[in-house]
Nucleic acid binder design. Sequence first.
DNA 1: CGGACGACTTAGCAGAAAAAAA
DNA 2: TTTTTTTCTGCTAAGTCGTCCG
Length: 756
Amino acid sequence: MSGDHSHNEDQIDCGSRVNDSHKHKDKYKEKEHKHKDHKKDKEREKTRHGNSDYKDFSDKKHRDKEKEKMKHKDGSTDKYKDKHKEKRKDQKMKSLDGKVKKEKENGFASPQHLKSEPEDDFYHSPKHDKSLKRERDDDNDSEFKPKKIKTENDKKVKKRKQEDENMKSKKTKKQKGEVTDGKKKAKKEPEEKWKWWEEERYTDGVKWKFLEHKGPVFAPPYEPLPSHVKFYYDGKQMKLSPEAEEVATFFAKMLDHEYTTKDIFRKNFFKDWRKEMTGEEKAIITDLKKCNFVEMSDYFKAQSEARKAMTKEEKLKIKEENERVLQEYGFCIMDNHKERIANFRIEPPGLFRGRGDHPKMGMLKRRIRPQDIIINCSKDSKHPEPPPGTKWKEVRHDNKVTWLVSWTENIQGSIKYIMLNPSSRIKGEKDWQKYETARRLKKCVDNIRNQYREDWKSKEMRIRQRAVALYFIDKLALRAGNEKEEGETADTVGCCSLRVEHIKLHPESDGQEYVVEFDFLGKDSIRYYNKVPVEKRVFKNLQLFMENKEPDDDLFDRLNTSILNKHLQELMDGLTAKVFRTYNASITLQQQLKQLTNSEENIPAKILSYNRANRAVAILCNHQRAPPKTFEKSMQNLQTKIDAKRDQLSDAKRELKSAKADAKVRKDEKSKKAVETKKKAVQRIEEQLMKLEVQATDREENKQIALGTSKLNYLDPRISVAWCKKWGIPVEKIYNKTQREKFAWAIDMADEDFEF
DNA sequence: CGGACGACTTAGCAGAAAAAAA
DNA sequence: TTTTTTTCTGCTAAGTCGTCCG
């Protein structure tokens, strides 16, 4: 239990988060651009959180101003990080200390590395692989190791045994093994749920030995519009070339979306659209405002109506076709097991929609063709054939990576991949591993915390910055905050990239001392707003970091994620900034469950407690969502139900009363019985009422909170499984089907006394 | 040795599907 | 049934982090 110390408590209450944007309007309004050298000053409006009043930080603008050097009392050299900002300004001070830690190679962030040797033959015979199979994370998990048979009913035990047996034989022959061993091939059923978690893992960076798949499913080709659907330019009908028409339809489909009204979106779209036009078209179409896409738009709306109105036979047919495609392309064979592929369909062309104020919104995301595609599979598999008359860009055989297909996307120039489903071995192992790393952090987090507190006093500025940043990451679960290239993406930040303008210091606020007010846009342009009291030393340090800086200067000018992670790596093997999020999320869930679950309560009430614990985590991690469009209405409906139930309750009470009176007079068995019945009715209704009220509360509290992200990515599923087992709650109440597939390993291995 | 790049995880949302209500 | 509401799934953008390379 080294992990749960008071500090955790803080996680739950780590500041007063206010989601409501209004409170904050005007905030940045005033700043004016002293240097308006910035190209992007234009309208960047709000994100949904702030709506237009959240006048954004647009002006980070001139981060180009040359920053003068501020001197820091500790005399260390100058800033370390102006870098990317002004396009690599020039100064590159290097930090004088070079702690370079050797890095670990294999993908498993755990100790014990075995050097990966060059290895020229990927497909060496199954026979001699192995030997070192490393068990999941060294320490402590012996408890979850393959099977110790817990007392279960015979049937189960038997089955287990048999499985063990299988396993054994499999192990010896490993890969080769069951291809032959069973006619299972015949039947669809993948040999009844493969328990990969009971097998050994690769240790040397090899991700698989055999991989075969059918390649991607391409987006359907463009179907030209019927001739009665016209496009008008400047009032005059105009027939577009197929290429130009296709791009026009992308715009037409988004016509009622608000971003077709945004300047950047329109400008980017128009520019890319023109590239698709023929010479004549280009000559004529020079102003987007004169384009009339209404008929096209109406046509698509009609189409979608028609689709909805299809008969069920037609719908069924489509469904069957989809199923067929899924069966054919949705699976691959990896090391003798059939595994589900996550995204086997290539992204269709369209207009790029970034999140937040994205400088590239509206650009044309081009169609991906076979010649853009790289196929990855094993040499000894039959690789997928490109569609007739086309070629793949490349077919490679790299078993050090997990992807099956990749291509380069044209908006940011990044690579996209087709990979396996979360239920696959390859994803599951990694996920499991992630939680094991977080559990290792639990063991040393106290030391780490003591150390960073010490570091607040360091005389080296870089150390202090690092220590304060780490404190934020730990206490507030902030993301690391890599630097981003300006102008390529929306302006968002994480811990290391916070700027002075993102925090405000209040020596005293609402009766608390040393309060820091955070307000910035994080991943996906989700606003993070929080007011949190910090320790005095932290506060003083922040004042120091902010001295002589402009609002758009980096708060931690001598820190970046790579420095921070290098440091963390020294504190614990495999430790990086994001491990803190995982750790704090999971430990918070565990502790909240402990605290909130009331053994007396019934299942729905316990589930409510679970949701509350989950919610505490979501709040910690700032997982927000847009309130559902129908939220108000659905709240109202619920309220109506509650009112109705209330009336029903008072009626029932009235009846009970009269029954009592009646019984008093009559004193016969029958009337007594009637009283009992009424009493029961009242009770039942009270219970129902309570349930509704609880539901209303739950829903209201959840208005802007998204529970899914934490459940899927941050909470060790074994905590939830153990909780379910402990209280006799069916896991289906907590995890739906896909989630159960993803967490099959946890459901299988955790028992009720699992401790994170 | 820092920055670009590659691989992989994490994220919210829109639309489909399922469930509940009418 | 059909319609409405809720839940789930697919999609793909946007992060993190390690490594490769000039």
